[in-house]
Amino acid sequence: MLSVKGLKANVGDKEILKGLDLEIGRGEVHAIMGPNGSGKSTLAHVLSGREGYTVTGGSVTFEGQDLLDLEPEARAHLGLFLAFQYPVELPGVNNTYFLKAALNAIRKARGEPELDAVSFLRLMKEKLKVLHLDDSLLKRPVNFGFSGGEKKRNEIFQMAILEPKLAILDETDSGLDIDALRIVADGVNALRSPERSVILVTHYQRLLDYIQPDYVHVLAKGQIIRSGGKELALELEDKGYGWLGAEEAA
């Protein structure tokens, strides 16, 4: 469903992605690991359409469409979702209201009827149950004054409501203690389905103890230098990134 071929991207004058290839099939969970500065977050941002990155080569197709041509919102309408490493605070914007507007924007773009308040509340309750979350976050402004763990949980909750076809989790494990990590991982696992693909961008193997990936890729110096099954992550944990000659990448 996602096909990345020879992707090159710059931030300013600096080339960060240097010809990256990645194929992701429906329902697969891929972990992308790598040392700091290897281009992991850049990949997540380029895929979701953030400004400030210049694509200088290669292609990205998602469900047969050229993704790089699309505005961020159009990518969301197609079913792409980015869980942010640092979720952004929106003071005064009620979390429930925000999510309802987002879901309805997506439904509208797809030609589906918008959900009314009652149906939306029902959907929210259902998803809260699936994720074992309480509703305390919903009445507050989006991410405003949330703890690190609450922010990440909120991202997963948004993902549950928006039901993306491809979710990119950008270092969702960073800054979480072990309990928070477990809650977030349980959430992601609950949302796994044959219809939903996931890219886990992470620095540490730790997250993969809780979310079992189908594939693991090692990103270094802007390229994928090694791909394998979940055992690759364990090997990395043992031997470090230096084992693959990726240590000087930063």
Partner: peptide, 11 residues
């Protein structure tokens, strides 16, 4: 903030 909202599907 803008990118966050847009990545959720809002114009």
């Amino acid at each position: 903030q803008l990118f966050y909202c847009r990545s959720r599907g809002l114009t």
